[in-house]
Computed example of a mutant assay.
Amino acid sequence: MPSALRNSLLTALLALVFGFLGAATWSWSGLADNRTRAYLLENPVVLEEMFAALQQQQAQERLAEVGSPAYMPFPGAVMGNPEGSKVLVEFTDYNCSYCEASLPDVTRLIAEDPDLKVVLRELPQFDGSEAAARMALAAAMQGKYVEFHEAMFKLGPANSETAVAAAQQIGLDLERARTDAASDVVTVELAKNFQLAQQLGFNGTPGWIVGDTLVNGFVGYDRMKEALEKAGPPLG
C-alpha cells in the first residue's frame, strides 16, 4: 500500500476511534506518533476492527442519504409479511448463481419469522436477465411475484424464452404480462434500482439492506440471521 494512502487510512481510522471516545479536534501529528503507528501495524486486528467500523459508519451514512425509497417495494414485489416491521431488502438478478443460492436462506428466514418483510429489487446485470426482471415485475402487477421468482430460478438460465415459460407455468395472463413488462412503469423501476444500487455502493448481486445496515454478496443463512438480529430499524 502506498505510504500516502496508508497514512490517509490511518488518519481516518484514528479519527473514527477518537470520535467514539468523545475526543475534540486532533491532528495527525498529535496522534499518530511513531509509537501509535507501530502499535497499530504490529496489531493489525485493531486496524481490521477499526476499518470494519468505518465501513459500517459510511454504509449507514449512504443509507440515511437514500432514505425510505430504498425500502419501498415495487407493488407486489415482496416476500414474507408485507406489513412486517423487520425489513430485508435484496438486490437480485435471475442469472446470478449467488442470488439463486440465497433463495433457500431467505425462504427459511421468512418461515422462522412471521414479522419479516423481504423487499425484492430487480437489478438485471447479465445477458438475458432484463427480460426476466421485466416479467417478474409484470408478475408482481398480477399478484404472482413470489411464484414467478421461484419458478424463474428453477427454469434458468434467464432469457426471454424462459421468462415466458415461467410466466406460463404460474398462470399469468401472458398478453397483459408482455404489455406490463414493456411499460414505462417497469422501465422506471429498473432505472431506480440501478440508481439506488449505485448510491449504496453495490457493484454486484446479491446486495442486501438489513434494517439499518448493508451487506454485500452471498453470506449464507447464519450470517444473514445474525445481521437481522443485530440490525436496527430501517433508516428514513
Rank of each mutant, 00 (worst) to 15 (best):
Gly67Ile: 01
Thr36Asn: 07
Gly19Gln: 08
Gln58Ser: 09
Ser8Ala: 15
Ser29Phe: 05
Thr25Lys: 12
Tyr39Ile: 07
Leu31Pro: 05
Ala52Ser: 10
Ala32Ser: 09
Val17Tyr: 14
Ser68Gly: 03
Ala38Ser: 12
Asn7Tyr: 09
Pro44Glu: 04
Arg62Leu: 05
Val66Gly: 01
Glu42His: 07
Pro44Ile: 03
Trp26Met: 15
Thr25Asn: 07
Val17Gln: 15
Arg35Cys: 04
Glu65Thr: 12
Gly67Ala: 04
Arg35Phe: 10
Ala52Trp: 01
Leu21Glu: 04
Phe18Cys: 07
Val66Phe: 00
Ala23Asp: 06
Glu49Ile: 12
Arg6Tyr: 09
Leu16Gln: 08
Phe20His: 14
Gly22Glu: 00
Glu49Gln: 14
Pro44Gln: 09
Gly67Pro: 02
Ser68Leu: 13
Phe18Lys: 03
Ala64Glu: 05
Thr11Lys: 09
Tyr39His: 13
Gly19His: 06
Met50Arg: 00
Trp28Asn: 14
Leu41Pro: 03
Phe51His: 09
Leu47Lys: 04
Asn43Ile: 07
Ala52Arg: 10
Asn43Thr: 06
Ala64Leu: 05
Leu47Arg: 00
Ala15Phe: 04
Phe18Val: 12
Leu31Asp: 02
Ala23Leu: 03
Val46Phe: 07
Leu5Thr: 15
Leu40Thr: 00
Val66Met: 00
Ala52Phe: 06
Leu14Glu: 10
Gly30Glu: 12
Leu5Pro: 01
Phe20Ala: 14
Leu21Pro: 01
Gln55Phe: 06
Trp26Phe: 15
Pro44Cys: 01
Gln60Met: 11
Leu47His: 03
Ser29Gly: 13
Gln58His: 03
Asn7Arg: 12
Glu49Thr: 10
Leu54Val: 06
Arg6Asp: 07
Glu42Cys: 02
Ala52Cys: 02
